[in-house]
Design a protein around this nucleic acid. Structure first.
Lengths: 256, 256
DNA sequence: TAGCGACGTCGTACGGCGTACGGAATAAAT
DNA sequence: ATTTATTCCGTACGCCGTACGACGTCGCTA
């Protein structure tokens, strides 16, 4: 019975249940802290993405031997879980507005901002990261935005999932657009130059009337680099209206 | 000027522009076909996930030497791109219904089904996979569902992105629930047994009133294993209503 | 105060990955 | 019959996460 508990649980909650722990430890003091390791991991992932976060480069970044990392963190996977909770913990959650639609909008915008600031979070969703203190607190905060408006418990959960899922998608889309723009100077443009002819040749005979027109419009709009943000506005407005209608309330309709 | 064209483009469109190619090739005939390799990759990824799709095991699966794979496919990344387009190509797209809401629903359900049948697709979105023939055809089909209803080009694109993005999220959620249930017999249940005490101890002092209640309700509902599907119904209804409202039409409201 | 034992540090090593390279076999073109 | 393009594939390189064990450093107990 009762096997060893998951070590990452204790690590996740290390800040809230810290006191009354074993007050003295024998060997040499740790040169760094778990937080320092996790923060360095976050910096690295922010800069170069999750794939570039290897134990070796992280150790070098910290001036540590590779295996020393494992005295702070049981594995790379656990480190990433800690990183997610740490990122969520950094944001002090704003107070929820009075108006319901404004509350829904705020939930989505907070999620969007966090996902855009740390796009690697999107590679990791659904990793039972909700067991950390910051995840729990945020989930509670999100549910507070839809509490007492006439939804049952399951609908509350699904509404939050709908909002945050959409915000994450929009952030991912914006992030990819940002990446593409950054590389546009060199490789992306060259790629088109080298392949547009081939693409036209290969698509000969086939035509995509609507996709061609829409793709061109979207391409022009996105090249202005300001429009992935409009994806957030558009989808968010539709979702909010849909929820309002579901509650029998008046949709927001006119915008600015 | 004009560097070598991307080889994966020719591979993606290999079926439509096949004739008039070099009619004879010198060396020994290939024992397999690109399609056989791609299909085997799809099977493998369906069974064990993208992470388990390594060139070595794929080669073993096909009775080939590892490096022989590279005569069919330039790299693992290109293989995955081909796999995505192949998966999309397998579905014959149904005819779109008359009613607008039904059309939107169908777009979402098709996306949901494909993503649930091949969950690894979700790890790959936004990989400029849309340059393949099946992706192009599907995009055209999706846009056809929102053509002529009063949206401008960019709104059309964003509506499709909203629908398919949500459907993908819902499919990922359902897939994770399915996985959890599959492992519930052994590891998941043991994990809770080993950690529930630790979790309670560590969360002492903190309480999450709404999250606790909702989490319990969701847990009970999801344990019935039939409810991740309701996430699709709920969010889809909200989005469709939101789009209808945006167009000045009457929302669907009552549902069966 | 001596020394035991726990703990932090880290070098080495193992099995896995994607794939660059080059050689042998094969079949069409000359 | 020779050349040439192509397939097949063994070997090898540089990555990856991490198991293991040696070694030094400290706190505790005797």
């Amino acid at each position: 019975m009762a096997r060893d508990p998951d070590p990452s649980l204790e690590l996740l909650w290390r800040h809230v249940a810290a006191p009354a722990e074993t007050p003295t430890r024998r060997g040499p003091r740790q040169r760094l802290s778990v937080d320092a390791v996790v923060d360095a991991g976050i910096d690295l992932a922010d800069r170069d993405g999750l794939a570039a976060l290897s134990m070796r480069v992280l150790a070098k970044e910290l001036g540590l031997g590779v295996m020393s990392l494992y005295t702070y963190v049981p594995s790379r996977g656990d480190l990433i879980v800690l990183m997610v909770d740490q990122v969520l913990a950094r944001r002090t959650l704003p107070e929820l507005p009075e108006d319901l639609a404004d509350r829904l909008e705020m939930v989505a915008r907070v999620q969007y901002d966090d996902c855009l600031a740390h796009p690697w979070i999107l590679d990791v969703v659904g990793l039972r990261a909700w067991l950390g203190p910051a995840s729990a607190e945020r989930y509670e905060w999100q549910l507070g935005a839809v509490e007492g408006i006439g939804l049952d418990d399951i609908e509350m959960d699904q509404t939050i999932a709908l909002l945050t899922g959409f915000a994450g998608n929009a952030a991912g889309s914006a992030h990819r657009a940002r990446l593409a723009e950054r590389e546009m100077g060199m490789s992306e443009l060259e790629w088109w130059e080298a392949n547009s002819g081939e693409l036209g040749r290969v698509m000969a005979g086939r035509d995509y009337p609507i996709a061609g027109r829409v793709g061109q419009a979207a391409g022009e709009a996105y090249q202005a680099a300001s429009d992935p943000a409009r994806e957030l506005e558009f989808g968010l407005a539709r979702i909010i209206d849909g929820v309002l209608v579901h509650l029998g309330r008046q949709p927001r309709r006119p915008r600015a």
